Computed example of a mutant assay.
Amino acid sequence: MSDPRVLILGGTTEARLLADALAATAPHVRVTTSLAGRVANPAARLAGNVRVGGFGGPDALAAWLRQQRIDVLVDATHPFAATISAHAARAAAATGIDHFALRRPGWPADPRDRRHPARSLADAAARLVVLGGRRVFLTTGRQGLAAFAGAELDGLHFLVRTVEPPEPPLPRSIHILLDRGPYTLEGETALLLEHRVDVLVTKDSGGPATAAKLTAARELGLPVVMIERPPAPDGVPEVPDVRAALSRLGFSPAAADTCP
C-alpha cells in the first residue's frame, strides 16, 4: 500500500504517541488525528494533520472515511468514550476498512486496596451514601457531575479535579481544582491529607499519568469507588500500547521508543 492513510481517533496520550511515532519513522503514512474538541487547550501538539469536532454519527463518519480514502481507523479514544467507539465500529464495518482499538489496560488491583466497584456514575453516587465518608475526592472528569448533585448527597463535601471548569448542575458543597496530570505520589498524598479526604471516586481509566492517587489512597487506607469501563464494541481487535499498535500497522515496535 503506497502512502497509506490512517485516522486516529484521539484525545489520549497513546494517540499522540502513535502519531509521533508514525511521523518520525514512517513519514509516507498520511496521519490524521481527530479530537472531539471538548477540551479547549489540548495538553500537547500533535504530529500530522489534526481534525477537531464530531463527525455527526456513524453514517457521517463512514462518509468521511470514504471521502478521505482512509485505509486504517485506529480508535485511541478514552476507555470511557463509549459512543464514539461504537460509531467507529459501525463506520469501519460499513466501509470495510481495517479497524482496531488502542486501549490501555485498566489499573490492576492490589490486595491492600479497598476498592468498591461501581457500574456507572449514578451507582458510584449511591455507594457514597453507604460508605458514609463526608469528604470525597472526585476525579471522574467535568462531565456527569450531576450524578453527585442529588439531595441525598447534600451532606457531603466534594473536591473535584478537572482540566477545565465544569458546568452545573454540581454538588451543593464543592471545591474545584483545575489541574492536569501527570501527578506524583507525594503530591497526591499531600492533597488527600490537606483536604482530609475520606473516599476517592474515580474511573478505571488506566495509565501511569493519574495512577498515583490510587497508591496514595492505598497507603492512607482510604476506600476507592472505582467506576468500571463500559463494554467495548463486539468484534473490534484491541492492542494495549503504542508498540503493539505499530506492529499491527506493519511497522517496527521500536519506533515507539523514538517518541518524546
Rank of each mutant, 00 (worst) to 15 (best):
T13N: 15
A244L: 13
T140C: 02
K213N: 10
I97P: 10
A244H: 13
D123F: 08
T12H: 05
Q68K: 15
V136K: 01
A26R: 15
G235Y: 07
A19N: 14
L249P: 11
A255Q: 03
T215G: 05
E228F: 00
H157F: 03
L22Q: 08
R119A: 15
A62S: 11
F251M: 06
F100K: 04
G206K: 14
R51H: 11
P231A: 12
V224P: 01
L46D: 11
R127S: 02
R119Y: 02
P171W: 03
A93V: 11
H157E: 04
L193R: 14
S252G: 07
D3N: 08
G141M: 05
L153T: 02
P165C: 01
E228D: 07
H28L: 12
S252C: 06
L102V: 09
L214E: 14
T25Q: 14
F137V: 00
T32E: 14
T215N: 06
R114T: 05
R180T: 10
A91T: 09
T189I: 07
G207A: 09
L246M: 06
R45A: 12
P169V: 08
S2L: 09
V225M: 13
E164L: 12
A94W: 07
P42D: 12
I174W: 01
L177S: 11
I227Q: 12
G106L: 13
S173W: 04
A124E: 10
D113V: 12
L153F: 00
W64A: 10
A244I: 14
D241V: 14
V136W: 03
R104T: 10
L170W: 01
V129E: 06
D71A: 09
R114L: 09
D3G: 02
K203H: 06
D59S: 08
V242Y: 15
D113N: 09
T95D: 04
A40Y: 00
P182W: 01
H87Y: 06
A21C: 04
T184G: 02
V31T: 15
G250W: 06
R135I: 03
A101E: 05
A21S: 05
N41T: 14
L65P: 03
D113I: 13
M226K: 05
G132W: 09
H195W: 14
L249T: 05
E167M: 03
L145I: 03
L200K: 07
A92V: 15
R243N: 07
I97M: 13
P223N: 14
A36Y: 02
G150N: 09
T140N: 00
S247C: 03
G56W: 11
R142E: 07
G53P: 02
A149F: 00
G96C: 09
T12N: 05
G11A: 11
L22N: 10
G207P: 09
V163T: 15
R30P: 11
A19K: 15
A15W: 15
H175M: 09
A36H: 00
A122S: 08
R196N: 11
S34F: 04
A44P: 08
V72D: 05
F137I: 02
P4M: 03
A86R: 06
F100D: 04
L220C: 10
H175G: 08
L121K: 06
L249Y: 07
P231Q: 10
D198Y: 04
T33V: 14
V29G: 13
H78D: 06
R196Y: 12
A47G: 01
S173Y: 02
L46P: 08
L193G: 13
